[in-house]
Design a binder for these strands. Structure first.
Length: 134
RNA sequence: UGAGUGGGUUGGGCGGUCGCCUGUCACCUGUUUUUGUUUAUGAACAAGAUAAACAAAAACAGGUGACAGGAGGAAAGUCCGAGCAGGGUAGGGCACGGUGGUGGCUAACGGCCACCCGGAGUGAUCCGCGGGAAAGUGCCACAGAAAAAACACGGCCGAUGACUCUUUAAGAGAACAGGUAAAGUUGAAAUGGUGCGGUAAGAGCGCACCGCGUCUUUGGUGACAAAGAUGGCAUGGUAAACCCCACCGCCUGCAAGAUCAAGUAAGCUGGUAUAGCCUGCCCGGCUGUUUGCCAGCGGGUAGAUCGCGUGCGAUUCGUCGCAGAGCUUCUCUGGUAACAGAGGGUCUAGUUAAAUGAUCGCCACCUGUCACUUGUUUUAGCUUAUCUAACUACUGUAUAAGCUAAAACAAGUGACAGGUACAGAACUCGGCUUAGAGACCCACUCUUUCU
RNA sequence: CGGAGUGUAGCUCAGCUUGGCUAGAGCACUUGGUUUGGGACCAAGGGGUCGUGAGUUCGAAUCUCUCCACUCCGA
């Protein structure tokens, strides 16, 4: 039986690693999320979250980070091993939702993340096949 | 009944599934160390040595499971006060900063409690950086005669003295001496206010009331209050202007600091007795000669652990003892109260890209939409009655009642959708300030009605 | 987390020390003139809750306190 857990070693922790991931410039996005990825040598995917100050006060930012953690925990086995994922939110959509008085739901985040994962997997496999054929 | 004042409690609830952080315990795997046994090498035997295997214990790393605990009243702002840490320190004075009614509470405070005074309110109650303006300095724009300076200007009078005229003693004139502080368009503020008497004109010049000051007595620890006598009014405002008085205050802050690891580097420049240091200054003190001291530059800054969440000691691992400005919705005592003392209970999150969450079901509350019911108002239509000439009929921009339909508003019920205040511990406490949807409780005030 | 500082016209800044004089300067904007037209130039004008809310004072951009934004520094 597959356990969905999220340990400390599955997180990106250091400031230096965040900068390295951003320097790899592998970026995918949809209307809600933006993700930067970079290969690592751990053997499992790792999660990094970045929520800036303009998304609200500490309570709202903690809530957004928890939603991302929850989604990552439930969909980690669909992701590529040996990659670090750095997720960020799209500011404009959240601003619009805040004006309408709605809260962001975890199911919405999870669905958005699943679509991104499919996109990433196709792209990375394609590149690997190109290299192999060459 | 309506309106309101003050205070307190709580901060959506229950259940299922998955997940996060910390601690304790148990188990598994790996590594290292120690001990024991067996085997091998070696050896005549024993002891000892080396290697391997097994077992036990300890430490470290990884994993699994169980149990326990896991955000707030403001965790926020960082506005104060402390603990704690480092630096400094023989001592004194000045400077600088803070506080400011009185008495108390507290480890301390700019906090809290009680009282006094002033202001607001019918009242419960609320608000107040609330010492000193005869220690000195400054400022008071515009307007105004004048902004604190003398009645200087402008007025009034001219009783008294001198002058001129008429005239008999007396009267008139002018305004020279002189007297006076009543009027003078202002302004935030103008030499106590109002009234009567008084006078040549006036004036606390006299009196009555009010205000103010001084003294005495009484009450109170005190701020102050009350009563009486007395002075005749003298000192306009501003100290959140400088200042004076009283009291308090070393500087820097957990990114403090300690240990370990790594790393530069016996690096360079300047000063050095009329020197350097001792927080800003002074008195004063200390240092003691170029391999020294001080200042600056350069270099370096992936870090880790402790500090850090009760501590120390003992232990039969159940707990016990001592110490905490520790906590306490418990009890008693003292005190009006803040609070203090004694007893009982209790030790309560510990993260570091930062742990408390997500989702489902039911319930509670709020908002919106739709449907139904009830009530009110308006409009339209119909019926009846009245009125419209004395009667009847007709008619009607007439009135009233009823019914029907539509719209709006209010209340209730049901369904659906959305939401559930403010807000996240970052070394720890005591306060203050600010944010804030509600729910509940207590005490009190005013108004209306009834008894 | 701790410590410093700044908010004034659409923009960049003065004025705050020592409270009152008209809240000012440059660029920008509007109108008119000049030019065949535009730019430049000349003349006139509009535009300010002085970040917010209280207090002291007769009177606050200025003094005091509270709150809100923003900037910088610190191993």
């Amino acid at each position: 039986m597959i356990r969905y857990r999220l340990k400390k070693k599955q997180r990106v922790v250091s400031n230096r690693r965040f900068k390295e991931i951003l320097d790899c410039r592998m970026r995918f996005a949809n209307e809600l999320l933006t993700v930067f990825i970079a290969p690592n040598d751990c053997g499992w995917p790792r999660l990094g979250v970045s929520v800036g100050k303009r998304f609200g006060n500490a309570v709202e930012r903690n809530h957004l980070k928890r939603l991302l953690r929850e989604s990552f925990r439930l969909s980690q086995y669909d992701m590529l091993d040996n990659y670090d994922y750095l997720f960020m939110y799209n500011h404009n959509l959240l601003k619009k939702m805040k004006q309408d008085g709605r809260r962001l739901k975890a199911t919405v985040v999870k669905a958005s993340m699943a679509r991104l994962i499919v996109k990433i997997n196709k792209r990375v496999e394609g590149r690997a096949n190109e290299k192999a054929s060459k």
